[in-house]
Amino acid sequence: MSAVLSRVAQRTYWLGRYLERGDATGRLVTVNANLLMDLPVRLPLGWYPLIAITGAEGLFRELYPHDAAQSERTVCRFLTSDARNPGAIIRSLAAARDNARNVRETMPRSTFEYINELYLYARSTLPAATSRTLRGEALDGISRRVQQLEGFLSQNMLHDMHWEILRLGNHLERADMTTRILDVRSADLFAGRHDLAPFEDIQWRSVLRSAYAMQPYNASVRGPVTAAGALEFLFKDERLPRSYLRCLRSVRRSLLSLPRRQRPLRLCAEAVGMIEATDVGRLALAGQSAELHAFIDSCQARIGELHAAIARAYFDVPAARAGSKA
């Protein structure tokens, strides 16, 4: 397998990440909307948690200083079509397009065309995502196109180093987004509210749905949806394509076919070790919400470290050693 240019590797990796991020952000919005409709009006659950999950509290306050209520319209615009927010879907897809444009010679020739279409679709439909009635279709349309694209690449691209790097970005982002989805409802909203117990199961259903994991959960667990069950499933079930552990295993598999992998591989193994050693179901117990949140934070920190190690190994090749024979 011939070596991939570092610049191309970096672009390809980010293409994988941004495609996944665009899709996952859309699912967060959809699922939150569905959840709110199922919950009693008196619950203090709103749209703001989505801002917190994507780590954009500061920017949101800056852009919308007058929207103290963090209304549905504003938050939805912020997360979907507001190009001033780097975490907005439109920005993720624009970045995916830009990266694809820079590596178009390494991909099947229709790839850029499809990504361009995806971007143009998003640009024309996302402004409608502030409307409740139009939101579902717009976001579904994006998910469908992202997944068609991933299927197209999987079936038509040579599974060489370019492919593994694309998958690396894909799976790392997916692992990260799965932890963020879990974080949406890590806040223990129901503590001491026995009257709301029936809704706990609705909350976790919505979390499962955001990860395309509701139906798999039913098929696999064949029991009621519980916090412990959902956490266990989304973190650790290796049969679930979007589970955190499964994503890490995929990262590991991609790394194994790349050179200079020692450090990223070691960090990946440590992240796997940590999740395997943790009884995540226990974190679901009432009163443990702070602990769950802290655990999710540490997972995300591991992903950050892994990303940094990948960047160092593959994207920043020092020029200094050129020509001085080893």
Partner: peptide, 9 residues
């Protein structure tokens, strides 16, 4: 040389 994921080639 070009900068690649394998180093300089």
């Amino acid at each position: 040389y070009m900068k690649t994921v394998e180093g300089l080639v």
